[in-house]
Design a binder for these strands. Structure first.
Length: 568
RNA sequence: UGACCUGUGGUGUAACUGGCAACACGUCUGACUCUGGAUCAGAAGAGUCCAGGUUCGAGCCCUGGCAGGUCAACCA
């Protein structure tokens, strides 16, 4: 695991949610030998996103709270969409988040033989039949939520005939779509899912694990609950849209169970975040159409994207705790996610100075060849992180935004004739503003006060501002990537008749290639976290090379000056 | 003309078997500060979708409405 803290030691006092209460009740009633066993069941057809992180934290967190276990199970019943690449990324992401399924890795495909045998059992019991009709016909007989369905003409086939047909389906004698196996339940049920649901379909696709062995594959409803049952799951936690599936889930368990043990499905509201989309289909679309650089583009709400952006597992876990678990289908403000990273990184991130929009400053009374190694604090929130040296020279860079030729009343930073502190260095006073023929400021001349070395006030005089800076001769030239929200609309999904991509923010990425960082960052590795003082939290991007380090801005610091600016 | 689910400050969550609505984010003050960060102190903001009812007392219970979500894939 790339981050040393695992999820176990951050738990402590979680708020009880409605699922806790239901588990407490189950335990009090002595159900399932008082076990708590959950599972996280992703389909390997895409990368995990922050919504999955909520589910992962919930499932693994619950098990930890009750001294139970959590399985990782790949729900791979549809070979046409699933790939090994996704399996690997999912395992990496779950581990990175700080959770471990130990030796309990399962695939729904592990259960294909048992599922198939169970289907045969249902046929023998007269509870399943083969239907020869095509998809359209079957669907039209299904009725609507308001109108009951009609029975298929094949519904009352003889058991022997069903057995024979299903066997031949399995052997590959029929083409895709020619036949399906359906459970025989109730075509008039007010619940659409109970109207003789299809449980097996013919698919002549290559499966990422079972290869070409099978010609028939079970449907989700026919696989999920049974896998839960065979794995010994006690609480099968899923999202709200499966609520209407629960009677069917229970129906299959009823056919299967041979003891008092029974898994129970509980539904909670999936996570919705402002200014983003959260469906694998839409995220895939962004990737495929090249709107982002990949699943791990730092603007993506995927776990791999957040990781590359500089989020920490701890911050995501804390976020997950904070948002709680309910059945209310709401929308969480991204600012809460951002708060979670700031909170964690403030306590842990190495401080460093970096200038991302350089303006050269010449300190005219400072010796030409002198290089002073000044002391800087690595993290004021954590003394154990120690100190480092920062080289100071006659020519430095400061942030362009930190100088104004004609500063307004509330601008505290540098201006002509003004004195400010250079962090850990000296007090400097601006004496000259150098411009090119277009009137653009190209350089500042300052003088420094040798008595203020280290940034201390020699005589108790105050300066209004402290600026970060980087030596022009020692600074490490770098690329910095700034990110903004991917969408301009709070709910890009919430507009009927308007495609979500219409709301994409054209300025969600800006690349600054003329940035200078203090030499300390030379030793950093991809994904290392930093606070660039006064700017925000950044981490090193894997695109970095020794010649050109690249940093991503995870999130900016809270900035009351910028906020005040925005209001004018 | 259905079934199931949901409805508490701007947002998200709390409120044990009914006892004067709490916390977090966000917002706004002020203090402090070698990060306009962090920290600290404080403020504003809901009377719990509506209407009845039960009760000394209801966000919690009952009745009836209203609003929103989900369900008609050989997807999960």
């Amino acid at each position: 695991m790339s981050e040393n803290n695992t999820a176990n030691n951050t738990e402590a006092k979680k708020k009880a949610n409605f699922i806790n209460m239901q588990i407490d009740a189950d335990l009090a009633a002595g159900k399932n030998d008082k076990r708590v066993h959950t599972r996280f069941p992703p389909e390997p057809n895409g990368y995990l996103h922050i919504g999955h992180a909520k589910s992962i934290c919930l499932n693994f967190g619950l098990a930890q709270q009750y001294g139970g276990k959590t399985n990782l199970r790949f729900d791979d019943t549809n070979p046409s969409k699933e790939e090994t690449e996704y399996v690997e990324s999912i395992m990496e992401d779950v581990h990175w988040l700080g959770f471990d399924w130990e030796n309990r890795l399962y695939y729904a495909s592990d259960f294909f033989p048992k599922l198939h045998a169970f289907a045969i059992q249902l046929i023998k019991e007269g509870k399943a039949y083969v239907d020869d009709q095509d998809a359209e016909t079957i669907s039209s007989q299904k009725g609507t939520p308001q109108k009951p369905g009609m029975e298929s003409p094949h519904r009352n086939r003889l058991v022997e005939e069903n057995l024979d047909l299903f066997e031949r389906m399995t052997a590959g004698e029929f083409n895709e779509g020619e036949k399906v196996l359906r459970a025989k339940i109730d075509m008039t049920s007010p619940n659409m899912h109970m109207r003789d649901p299809i449980i097996y379909r013919i698919m002549k696709a290559h499966h990422h694990r079972t290869g070409d062995k099978w010609c028939v594959y079970p449907m989700y409803d026919f696989a999920h609950g049974q896998c839960d049952y065979w794995e010994g799951i006690t609480h099968s936690i899923c999202t709200l849209e499966f609520e209407v599936h629960r009677p069917l889930y229970d129906w299959f368990i009823d056919q299967l169970k041979d003891s008092d043990y029974r898994p129970r499905q509980i539904e909670f509201a999936r996570l919705n975040l402002t200014y983003t989309v959260m469906s694998k289909r839409k995220l895939l679309e962004l990737v495929k159409d090249g709107h982002v650089s990949g699943w791990d583009d730092p603007r993506m709400p995927t776990i791999s994207g957040l990781r590359r952006r500089g989020y920490t597992p701890e911050s995501i876990r804390n976020f997950s705790d904070k948002i709680g678990v309910t059945k209310v289908d709401g929308m969480i403000d991204v600012s809460l996610l951002e708060f979670s990273v700031r909170e964690h990184l403030n306590k842990t991130a190495q401080r460093v100075m970096g200038v991302i929009n350089p303006l050269k400053v010449v300190i005219t009374n400072y010796p030409e060849d002198l290089v002073e190694e000044l002391d800087a604090v690595n993290n004021p929130e954590d003394e154990t992180m120690g100190m480092r040296k920062v080289p100071f020279t006659r020519e430095i860079y400061i942030e362009r935004d930190d100088f104004m030729e004609d500063p307004p009343r509330k601008f505290f930073r540098l201006g002509p004739g003004r004195e400010v502190r250079l962090r850990y260095a000296y007090f400097v006073t601006c004496t000259d503003v150098i411009k090119d023929e277009n009137g653009e400021i190209t350089e500042l001349h300052c003088t420094y006060d040798p008595a203020s070395k280290g940034g201390n006030s020699p005589d108790g005089r105050k300066v209004k501002a402290t600026l970060h800076w980087v030596s022009a001769t020692h600074g490490v030239k770098s690329e910095v990537r700034l990110y903004d929200r991917l969408f301009n609309d709070e709910d890009p999904n919430g507009h009927k008749d308007v495609d979500f991509k219409e709301f994409m923010n054209p300025d969600s990425l800006s690349v600054l290639s003329d940035c200078y960082l203090e030499p300390f960052i030379k030793d950093s590795k991809p994904l290392d976290h930093f606070q660039f003082e006064r700017l925000g939290y950044f981490n090193m991007d894997p695109d970095s090379t020794p010649e050109k380090p690249v940093f991503n801005r995870t999130v900016a610091l809270r900035d009351s000056w910028a906020k005040a600016q925005g209001k004018e």
